[in-house]
Design a protein around this nucleic acid. Sequence first.
DNA 1: CATAGTTGTCTAGTTTATTAGACAAATCGA
DNA 2: TCGATTTGTCTAATAAACTAGACAACTATG
Lengths: 238, 238
Amino acid sequence: MHSVAGGVALWRQIADAIRLDIVGGKLANGDRLPTEALLAQRFSANRHTVRRALAVLAEEGVVVAEQGRGTFVRSIRRLSYPIGKRTRFREGLKGQAASLTSVSISDRIENATARVAVALGLKPGAKVVRTEGMSVADGVPISRSTTWLSYRRFPDFASRINQMGSTTLVFGSYGITDYSRASTRISARHADVEEIQSLTLAPGAIVLVSEAVDVDPEGEAISYALSRFPAERMELVV
Amino acid sequence: MHSVAGGVALWRQIADAIRLDIVGGKLANGDRLPTEALLAQRFSANRHTVRRALAVLAEEGVVVAEQGRGTFVRSIRRLSYPIGKRTRFREGLKGQAASLTSVSISDRIENATARVAVALGLKPGAKVVRTEGMSVADGVPISRSTTWLSYRRFPDFASRINQMGSTTLVFGSYGITDYSRASTRISARHADVEEIQSLTLAPGAIVLVSEAVDVDPEGEAISYALSRFPAERMELVV
DNA sequence: CATAGTTGTCTAGTTTATTAGACAAATCGA
DNA sequence: TCGATTTGTCTAATAAACTAGACAACTATG
């Protein structure tokens, strides 16, 4: 009779709550968590259920249990991605991670859906380049993105991004020395199967979804990107 | 063997996925959903499991089933809350809802935590006013927020917000004719128990969390607000 | 009005989630 | 070293989730 639950297992709710205490700053790095008995009391759950939650967190590397001593916070941090008029992914994360690599997973030419066409100011069905990519900071996947661009204007965007790695550089190679963010829509949802795999998330994890349109200095839309960030690893700062 | 699941029941994942198709625009207002048999196939689930997901969506008012005919999208829309330098909650939602009411739930004086103190530029432990509030658009709860302000500067903020209803008005009554947004941090997580109740969410629902600091024209921080928006009803636009 | 297609209901069986209790193993301090 | 505290492991019972199959009820169409 966990009137609260409903399709989400108690152990997962508990794991989420504890993780939140950690990323939210209530529990600092080497802190000892409350004992399993206390946690069980706090969540009105059985100790075994709490143990399952802790096991998940241990597997994620968020906590470490030591028999006889207790369970300890192991470290976790969230990267902050600043969003503004001049949003640059790599620059924005500079200094927050030792390594930051972006890889292009796949690309193809397709016809613009209504949504993509509106965003890019094209006719529905117009040819667009679609590239799938992801970024990894210090070995941890932090974003998974899908980008659409006009095929007419950027016919070989895909091959260039493969070589150069950075969107800013590729735009430069097309003569666009500067560009800016026209709009960003932010929403959130559960990660889907593909995202759970590619971002190495626990099933049921939450992703922040940003839907961004970049424009050149003339105000012409040049790219429409749909990026997914694991909410437990990233936050967006406006 | 739903190797994908993990703490989140299949019926809930299916309900979430279908709801996403609807709010995401893949399914329009009066559209007929695929048959239960097809959905079962698509999600590799039993028809009964799909039926449970549809039952949830029907209870939410998102779909309506009609025996012999099919199941239909009933309507759903997401409000867009624009965030910028001059962010005003009520103005931002103008035109998107027929009615918009904000209520103050409770308030109290407390000592600033480290986080609150930093945000407001106060000494840790300084006296702050804390108010809990929520907003309802067309009868549907769309936000639940906690706001902290310096007690020294706004000693009876609480009673004024109760009378006036709008933050902008209360600031005006303190002689602050204009104010602007210094920063907004956006993250996402599962709704907690209190939020599920106050926002009338389904258990396991996702909330967008915005952490905002407003400043007066002199650049002095005047308020620190932590707002939670149901991700299924709201999106944030930068 | 017969038929194909769709949602609604019922029974039954398996797997997963949760609770419950007992005890072992490790740690720490008196 | 003893005893209290804490995590680790095992068994067992109940509730919720999921699958399976069959058939009823309703709708639209030719």
